[in-house]
Design a protein around this nucleic acid. Structure first.
Lengths: 348, 348
DNA sequence: TTGTAGGCGTTATCAG
DNA sequence: CTGATAACGCCTACAA
């Protein structure tokens, strides 16, 4: 079956291809009756414009690349939803790239992004190094980094939509100090190194300002199982820190379960908080506190920013760095051990 | 900055563009020294072939569309990983589409798929109706449906990689009957209707064969919170079914928590099983049984099948329907109430 | 082994 | 308002 082209439509409607092109693109210089005729021909033949050819003619693909780490997939679904919805609104197609250690190095991803001639790029977190970003910048391709804050102020066609993890951690530690807690542990997360670093900086800063040194950075293997096993052993004869901070839900749950089963009492002996929220934190007993990040909005805002950059919206000259607000999600309040049932309504 | 083209390279290397094209495409009819020269020119200029132009010239985009429901995003991450990895191996780009009730109707997605002239499509589950599939088939675009089994045998350029949920449910119920259990509830999952239907068919078939009628299909709102609230109330003065089957982890956990807190004893009073596995099932107390579906493999197999279809591999003439094996994940074995710590190693 | 020229399907510029 | 025609960047017979 031969793919039907603009020529076929032109012949069918007895006009030139230029006219067909005009009605496709809503050019308003077409007389109403000929537009009708063309429309009918289009319907009749089932013609769909070839986006590839359009892309070539316009040097514009109306496609945006999203690149994220394969591991973080499940965790970023809400951000992705925000990105996709806004992309849809502005009629952009999405090219999806994942990076992982073995099979798809960042290098290859960049290569294919450039070849694809996408109009813009959304880069997740910053699981990439500066050089890689440079390559993209060389090719003048607008991009926005979403997740963590860039260390350096973005220049050129680069935007940044982020959560200020450093401030978050800094505030959290200060509040803890106010409550008389200074025995704090931060659990390493190898999947989110740059966010980790920012948390750490915030914590260390707070400690320093109190004339203390932070030494509670611990790491172990990254799966729930090994974390849990490690901690189960560890808590057997060692009390947990008064406050344990983790990045992801499963890490927090590992702490909760291990400490619980070793006989330590939540709130009384220790507290655990996960930076990222998830519905599962409400399902453990006792439930676990966290921060609510408006992830969907983050995605939506990031994509919106990119679309603005793509049309050279003047307003983005100044606002290429957007900080996203967060709020604490308290599920367990005091030492009574009483648990709220569930307070966070998540898309299930 | 002018994008550099094949012409620029040709001039730089002092050959014709045809020759450049040949070295790009590894045509082996190029003399070694000229190939060298061309390569150097390419490096020097930082030339990257324009995939759009290639696509136009070849009527082939080396791009595959993946379409899935926005809601199912977080649940399908492992399948997606399998899809992505294999796509990468065969050098296909991925166009990503999500469907949701409001913003992106299936209709629009199909439209953009056709316009994009992708080489093939991966369709998740079957949250789409037959008509929609017909449209895609009309345009002769090869596709494979992954997730549930198609009701009708695929014809034309359609493949199907699936888990036989009907059989799974049928077997599960029969085993339960063998163990003397016939009071079974299946919890509705609105996000996975077709899988639900298949589970239901399997259960009903088993009941029928035992001369009984299955009446345990219950549904309530879809979030964890509302499920939990509903069940908490429900179990206050009503015993859970002897066996409660849910599709997703959060539904199972809602049952577990609500029943637990209402004082019902796991294994002794009731059992709950989630069809889909997730690491979170190991984190609840007592942990929850499930089935392990090799999700990554499912994705990988599906993508591999599609790539074969795209090159008209003769072997796919027969094997366009691939059934994926599953295996039970037992985390709680008997009535002692003792829980295995964790038995499933998930990517954390 | 290399170069020439036509074609892939659209858009945009200029005449008419 | 409509119709030629030259791009857009690359591939591939066909010639040389």
């Amino acid at each position: 079956m031969k793919r039907i082209t603009i020529y076929d439509v032109a012949k069918e409607a007895d006009v030139s291809l230029a006219t067909v092109s005009r009605v496709i693109n809503d050019s308003n210089v077409v007389r109403e009756d000929t537009r009708q005729r063309v429309q009918e021909a289009i319907e009749k033949l089932g013609y769909k414009p070839n986006a590839i050819a359009q892309g070539l003619a316009l040097s514009k693909t109306t496609t945006i690349s999203i690149v994220m780490s394969e591991n973080l997939f499940a965790y970023n679904s809400r951000i992705l939803n925000g990105l996709m919805d806004v992309a849809k609104i502005y009629n952009y197609n999405i090219m999806f790239h994942t990076t992982s250690k073995g099979i798809s190095r960042m290098q290859d991803v960049i290569e294919s992004i450039i070849k694809s001639r996408v109009d813009g790029v959304i880069l997740f977190n910053d699981n990439f190094n500066d050089e890689e970003m440079e390559v993209l910048k060389e090719y003048q391709i607008p991009m926005v980094i979403v997740g963590a804050r860039l260390d350096r102020k973005p220049e050129g066609k680069v935007g940044n939509v982020y959560v200020n993890f450093e401030k978050l951690a800094y505030d959290l530690v200060n509040e803890s100090f106010d409550r008389g807690i200074d025995d704090i542990t931060l659990v390493e997360d190898k999947l989110n190194l740059s966010m980790m670093n920012q948390l750490r900086r915030g914590i260390e800063k707070a400690y320093e300002e109190h004339g203390k040194e932070f030494k509670g950075y611990i790491g172990y293997d990254d799966s729930y199982k090994s974390s849990y096993n490690f901690l189960t052993d560890y808590y057997k004869d060692k009390k947990p820190s008064r406050l344990v901070i983790t990045f992801r839900d499963s890490q927090a749950i590992a702490v909760r379960n291990a400490a619980n089963e070793a006989g330590w009492k939540s709130m009384e002996d220790y507290e655990v908080i996960s930076i990222l929220d998830s519905k599962y934190l409400a399902m453990v007993r006792p439930p676990i506190n966290s921060y609510i990040l408006p992830e969907y909005d983050m995605g939506a805002i990031a994509m919106r920013l990119l679309t603005k950059m793509l049309v050279n919206d003047p307003s983005v000259q100044e606002d290429r760095e957007i900080e996203i607000e967060y709020s604490p999600m308290i599920r367990e309040k005091d030492k009574t051990g009483e648990t709220e049932k569930v307070t966070f309504e998540a898309v299930s």
